[in-house]
Each structure stands twice: as structure tokens, then as C-alpha cells.
């Protein structure tokens, strides 16, 4: 078992995909967290100018800026561990390397468990990189406008910890998705389309009505934001008032990861390799 985890870890580190995705993650999060932070800081100092410029830029009262900015690491960055997790599985089909993989470890469940565990770790590493970036960029922006960075608050660091956990779980969800959809192109299209389009739309639409809102909070992205405890979605979407408890959000993500991996492992993963 440990051998498989180690080998899967090596597989990630011996190809270029992980650091390409890591660079994009860091750049994207720095831009959003720092840029958004600078904009909000400027708006807070110049309320009149902001009102005349954009009108509706005022932050609702009671919303703390620091958690909002820091959570960008997971609220927009979660797509990266999912992609890497899915690629860890689909690459083996695409390049026909499953043959060698199953010759080295003929117990297929062990191999898939190794992928699941190693992608939890890789996802957590992406979480560390993402939050290091969002906290650095966000805090710098807030400090520049003399706003509270929240760095001395234990709540902030609890948020960071939960965010890293969320990123880890997203990595495992990617493995499950890859096992369900071994076609690499299809898996990538699903990840991008779902995370960047369908889910945001569904979350917005479902928040318009109480009944759908209670279902909508179980959407994976919503559950992830609930686990982290903050997200720009909670500001952006109109009435998403009651999200799940953080631990419920975590259980939803874990459930998705386990169910997809088990179902994929019992179907495509067990097929003849020819």
C-alpha cells in the first residue's frame, strides 16, 4: 500500500503537469486576492468615488474582507487539484501505462487507493501554495489601505486550515472523476464546464428560492465554501444565507470523493486492459 502511494507520488512529480498547474493557481489566486483586495480597499477609503464609479460596489455591512480575500485560494483555486487528480487516472489510460502499472502492482484496488491517498496530499500541497498566495497578496492589499488583515486572529488561521483540507478533498474527487470517466478529454471538459459554468449558474439560480437553496448548498462548490467558511459567492449571490456547517461541507466533499472512486473502481478500473 505504501509502495503504491509512493509510486503515485513519484508519477506526479516526474512529469511537468503539477508545476504548470501550480504556477497558474498561484498567478490566478494572486491576481484575484490582491486585485480584489486593492479594489475593495480603495472603495472603502473613497466611498463617494466608488459609488459614482460603479454604483453597487459597497460591501454589505458585517462582511469581513480578510476571510473573503483569503478564501479565493479555494473558492476559485479548487479546480486545479481536481484537474490534477483526474489526470492522475486518465493519463494512464491515454498513454496506455496501465499495463505497466498493473504489472508492478496487480492488485488494482491498491493502485487506486494509492492514487486517492497521494492526490489528497498533492491537493493539500496545492492548498498550502494557494493560501500562502492569497494570504500574502490579500494581506498586502489590505495593509496598504490600513484595513484589518486578520493575521493576528485565530479564526483566519482556522479558515486557512479548513481551506487546505478542502483542497486535499478536491484532489481525491479528481481521482474519483477520472476513474468514472477515463477518457482524458472528456474528464477535462467535465471539470472545466462544471466548475466554471454549470455549478456557478446552478448556485445562483438555486439561491433564488428557499427550496432550491436548501438543495443548492449541497452542490460540491457550495459544500467546499461551507467547509472553508467564506467565499466571494456568499457576497455575490443574493440570498445564500444558510450554508452547511463547515463539517457538513467537509463530509459532502469526502462523500463525493469516496463514492466516485468506489463506483469508478468497481467499473472502468476493473475492465480488461488491452
Amino acid at each position: 500500500m505504501l509502495r503504491s502511494v509512493g509510486a503515485e507520488f513519484q508519477k506526479v512529480l516526474t512529469t511537468r503537469m503539477w508545476w504548470l498547474l501550480a504556477i497558474v493557481l498561484v498567478g490566478y489566486v494572486a491576481l484575484m486576492s490582491g486585485g480584489f483586495g486593492a479594489f475593495l480597499g480603495w472603495a472603502a477609503q473613497n466611498p463617494d468615488a466608488a459609488a459614482s464609479a460603479g454604483g453597487n460596489t459597497a460591501i454589505p455591512p458585517g462582511v469581513e474582507l480578510a476571510p473573503l480575500l483569503y478564501s479565493f485560494a479555494s473558492s476559485i483555486g479548487y479546480v486545479f487539484p481536481v484537474l490534477l487528480g483526474a489526470l492522475a487516472v486518465t493519463t494512464e489510460f491515454r498513454h496506455r501505462t496501465l499495463t505497466t502499472t498493473f504489472l508492478a502492482e496487480p492488485h488494482r484496488t491498491t493502485v487506486l487507493t494509492g492514487k486517492f491517498a497521494s492526490q489528497l496530499v498533492v491537493g493539500a500541497l496545492f492548498g498550502v501554495m494557494g493560501f500562502a498566495t492569497s494570504v500574502a497578496a490579500g494581506a498586502a492589499a489590505l495593509a496598504a489601505f490600513d484595513l484589518d488583515t486578520g493575521l493576528d486572529s485565530s479564526d483566519t488561521w482556522a479558515l486557512v486550515g479548513r481551506g487546505i483540507l478542502a483542497m486535499a478533498l478536491w484532489g481525491a474527487i479528481g481521482v474519483g472523476l477520472g476513474a468514472l470517466v477515463p477518457n482524458q478529454v472528456a474528464a477535462i471538459v467535465i471539470v472545466i464546464a462544471f466548475t466554471q459554468f454549470f455549478e456557478p449558474v446552478l448556485r445562483l439560480v438555486s439561491s433564488l428560492n428557499d427550496v432550491t437553496a436548501s438543495i443548492g448548498r449541497f452542490l460540491p462548490g457550495a459544500a467546499s465554501d461551507a467547509l472553508v467558511g467564506a467565499s466571494f459567492y456568499s457576497v455575490a449571490s443574493l440570498g445564500a444565507s444558510d450554508s452547511l456547517e463547515w463539517w457538513q461541507g467537509g463530509l459532502v466533499l469526502l462523500g463525493i470523493a469516496v463514492v466516485t472512486t468506489v463506483v469508478g473502481g468497481a467499473t472502468t478500473w476493473r475492465r480488461d486492459v488491452s
Binding site: 509512493g6 509510486a7 513519484q10 508519477k11 516526474t14 511537468r16 493519463t91 501505462t97 508492478a104
Partner: peptide, 16 residues
Amino acid sequence: HPGRSARNHLRVTATA
């Protein structure tokens, strides 16, 4: 995997 070096391919397989 086309992006992995020969030595790394063997290392990964040896580990597994």
C-alpha cells in the same frame, strides 16, 4: 508517459 524520462519511468515502476 512521453513526458517522463527513461530513468524516472524505471524509478516509478521500481517503487510500485
